[in-house]
Design a protein around this nucleic acid. Structure first.
Length: 424
RNA sequence: GGAGAGAUGGCCGAGUUGGUUGAUGGCGCUCCGCUCGAAACGGAGUGUGUGGGCUAAAACUCGCACCGGGGGUUCGAAUCCCUCUCUCUCCGCCA
């Protein structure tokens, strides 16, 4: 959420920012509601002042044995007036709040301008794409040949676009989760969190999934709880409505969670295999930092995510999202995409974003620099470190051998108790 | 799921026959004094949000609101009523 005062004073900037993100917002409505709101607050407050003074007066006179009936009548009329102001005020506050929740964060000036995905900027790549002297297979064929993926049974149990790992596949999933968590905890200084997998509406609004993306999420109606779409939600909201101590910053958290997304309307070729599924595993990093250091922190966050792939020896590239491709809440975002030779394409496994104070303002996350200093909004960042299914795709497709087996990278072998996954 | 108790400032904890209570007190924290220094002791200060004034911006200043959230009664509510959420205790159920 943007600061209302900021919108008032930077109307054109906010308008331009929304345009760059290709989001339409009704700034005129917001500003006129804001003007009316301030007028009402001012009028209501001065009436309340009068009422407070008069009530005190009444109290004193009653103590003195008088019956100030006339004054009481007069104040009653003032009270009625206050009520009508406050009723309107309440309505305006509600409207204003809902409108404010639809204003996107401004893209950072360094984010490339653009109108579509095609305008994203290539940043760098790492690793060497493998060359094969046999016919390359996509991961769904490899996985079924190895007996580690069972799409049909997953569909039977739950429905389309659910997956099931079996045997070494399940162990690989577990190994990856542990490897990533251990790396971020031991080498990158993150604190592990194991959060709830269901989150309430307030938390979903705090990080910006609501109100815009409600249709993409699973809602348990009976409880009005959402299935966690990404650990970003529970972990960022961990400090919801708190004032943190500046001396404790920055805070680095890492969490594994299963993630649930409806992915409505995305069935078909694009979602074959493990590419796009309703339930997937992900290790997520979240940072709470001082405003002045958030762009530095974004780079190190990106490096932490890259480290996962480098240690797994998976070739990848980094893309910086153009304004139109930036998410609603982000100021700046890098995507990391792994190379999937069996599918002959790159697949996104991580988005590293700086939200500046956008989520902090929605979720009420502040900090104090000094003991007595005024609270300021913190900056939040997050990055997948990284999403599992597409990492599995990359492992299976990049490291496949002619005989159908898949060689595992060194770092996973202790977790797997094996060097290679072979057909049964 | 059933019965009961509770939710007050960073923390603990007063205050419910409605009336200068933003709220006694203690702890913590900040500053000053004492000290070679520290402890102890003495003194002062210490919430957030919001609207206006002043300002380059602050500081400052005048209001308003906030005692879990929302609504109501009243001239006036932390105190009374309704409702929601959460916590605790007991019973039931259960991995």
């Amino acid at each position: 959420m943007l600061d209302l005062k900021f919108i008032r004073e930077n109307r054109e900037l906010v308008k331009g920012g929304a345009q760059k993100k290709q989001v339409t917002v009704d700034l005129d409505k917001i500003l006129s509601l804001d003007a009316r709101r301030r007028q009402l607050v001012s009028e209501s407050d001065s009436l309340k002042q009068r009422r407070n003074e008069a009530s005190r007066d009444i109290g004193q006179r009653m103590k003195a044995g008088e019956d100030p009936a006339a004054l009481r009548e007069e104040v009653r009329a003032v009270g009625d007036k206050i009520k009508s102001y406050d009723d309107e005020l309440r309505q305006i506050d509600n409207d204003l709040q809902s409108l404010l929740l639809t204003v996107p964060n401004l893209p950072h000036p360094s984010a490339p301008a653009g109108t579509s995905e095609a305008d994203n900027r290539f940043v760098r790549e790492w690793g060497v794409k493998p060359i094969f002297d046999f016919t390359v297979r996509p991961h769904w064929e490899i996985g079924e040949m190895l007996g580690i993926l069972d799409f049909q049974r997953a569909t039977k149990i739950s429905g389309s676009n659910f997956i099931m790992f079996k045997g070494m596949g399940a162990r690989l999933e577990r190994a990856l989760i542990n490897f990533m968590l251990d790396l971020h905890i031991d080498k990158h200084g993150y604190t592990e969190i194991w959060p709830p997998f269901m989150v309430n509406r307030k938390s979903m609004t705090g990080t910006g999934q609501l109100p815009k993306l409600e249709g993409d999420m699973y809602l348990v109606e009976q409880e009005d709880l959402f299935l966690n779409p990404t650990a970003e939600v529970p972990v960022t909201n961990l400090h919801q409505d708190e004032i943190l101590n500046g001396f404790d910053l920055p805070l680095y958290y890492v969490a594994y969670t299963a993630c649930f997304r409806r992915e409505a309307g995305s069935y078909g070729k694009e979602s074959r295999g493990l590419t796009r599924i309703h339930q997937f595993d992900k290790v997520e990093m979240v940072k709470f930092v001082m405003p002045e250091s958030s762009y530095e922190e974004l780079e190190s966050l990106l490096a932490n995510a890259e480290d996962v792939l480098q240690r797994l020896e998976i070739p990848y590239r980094i893309i910086e999202l153009c304004s139109a491709d930036l998410s609603f809440a982000a100021s700046k975002c890098y995507d990391i995409e792994v190379w999937a030779p069996g599918m002959n394409k790159y697949l996104e496994v991580s988005s590293c974003s700086n939200f500046e104070d956008f989520q902090a303002r929605r979720a009420g996350i502040r900090f104090r620099r000094q003991a007595r200093a005024k609270p300021e909004y913190i900056h939040t960042l997050n990055a997948s470190g990284v999403a599992l299914p597409r990492t599995v795709i990359a492992l299976l497709e990049n490291f496949q051998q002619a005989d159908g087996s898949v060689l595992m990278p060194e770092v996973l072998r202790p977790y797997l108790h094996a060097d290679v996954i072979s057909p049964p």
